[in-house]
Design a protein around this nucleic acid. Structure first.
Length: 299
DNA sequence: ACACCCTCCTGATGGC
DNA sequence: TGCCATCAGGAGGGTG
């Protein structure tokens, strides 16, 4: 399940393999992969052909490749957005290799080198082309694609505004985990790193955000930063083997997880078996001792 | 306006 | 062995 660290690993791989290269042709093998590109698959392939991929960028779980019309030194006017969803992979492959079972979109390049493939088993991911607009979170920085302008900064970028995040938590009437997963408050955190950050901060997922102290809010934010930075160093978490980097290799942070996926296994702090709750139609893993349920809980 | 729920999708897994 | 239910979940859109 690609979250911020996994998407960043992919971004770095793309930076190495696709920056400055000009697309010869794109082929959409499954229309659902470009469903958010409202002009349709034919428009997508027609408009990306002949363009040059510039250095890839990322905010939260969104990745985008700015596109130039006139080679690697011309400024971008549009971008190709990529979201990996649950199971999306961007692979850089020898062109001759046979198509993957869930290959959705394939790009070939004018230099005849390795191709780029979007492979996605569960088809929650997508690619689309979009205009670039000024970044409201960092007006002096590079522009961002319009469809992701509503996303908050992620906690690893300079534009992240801690004061704004803390004020938003106080205003909300919801639980802390729901807030962490809300990409308009803080981006890049998904189910795995939300559980890990809450375990590190010793907070229960149903803790009402409006009752959190400033110290508690700082604790969970710091924990999120630390666990995602550590995961990035490890190449990401490949919990169900659907996440791989552009070379098709998994990361090894799964072995370092303290809460996620550890149902009935001993808490690494206190030994209490980790519990699993169902919440928002997904799993939440926590320690019953370190993370007691608040008397007034908010799902 | 806000909080929250439903839906999209495929493959692995488990019960009977 | 087959068949069905369950689980995994990001995020947009709909509901109350």
């Amino acid at each position: 399940m690609p979250e911020l660290p996994e998407v960043e690993v992919v971004r770095r791989g793309l930076d190495r393999w696709t920056t400055g290269r000009t697309v010869a042709a794109a082929e959409v093998l499954h229309p659902r992969a470009v469903r958010r590109h409202l002009e349709g698959p034919a428009d997508f392939t027609a408009r990306v052909a002949g363009r040059t991929f510039l250095a890839p960028r990322r905010r939260g779980k969104y990745l985008w490749l700015p596109l130039s019309d006139a080679g690697p030194d011309a400024p971008p006017d549009t971008a190709m957005i990529a979201h990996l969803g649950m199971s999306g992979q961007l692979l850089v492959n020898e062109s001759g290799r046979e198509p993957e079972k869930h290959l959705r979109v394939r790009f070939t390049f004018a230099d005849g080198g390795r191709d780029l493939r979007f492979v996605d088993q569960r088809t929650f991911g997508h690619l689309m082309l979009a205009d670039l607009v000024p970044d409201a979170l960092a007006p002096d920085a590079a522009p961002v694609p319009a469809p992701i302008a509503h996303i908050a900064a992620d906690p690893l970028e300079a534009a992240f505004d801690e004061e704004r995040f803390f004020r938003a938590l106080r205003r909300k009437r919801t639980g802390i985990k729901r807030a962490l997963l809300d990409q308009s408050l803080i981006s890049g955190v998904g189910n795995i790193y939300a559980d890990e950050a809450l375990w590190r901060a010793r907070l229960h997922w149903a803790r009402p955000t409006e009752t959190m102290t400033r110290a508690e809010a700082e604790r969970v934010l710091t924990a999120a930063r630390e666990v995602m930075a550590a995961a990035l160093k490890a190449g990401g978490t490949s919990f169900d083997s659907l996440y791989v980097n552009v070379d098709g290799e998994g990361g090894y942070f799964e072995r370092s997880l303290d809460a996620y996926g550890r149902r009935d296994e001993p808490c690494r702090r206190c030994g209490t078996p980790i519990r699993r709750d169902v919440f928002m139609n997904r799993s939440s893993f926590s320690c019953p001792t370190c993370q007691p349920r608040p008397r007034r809980a908010r799902a």
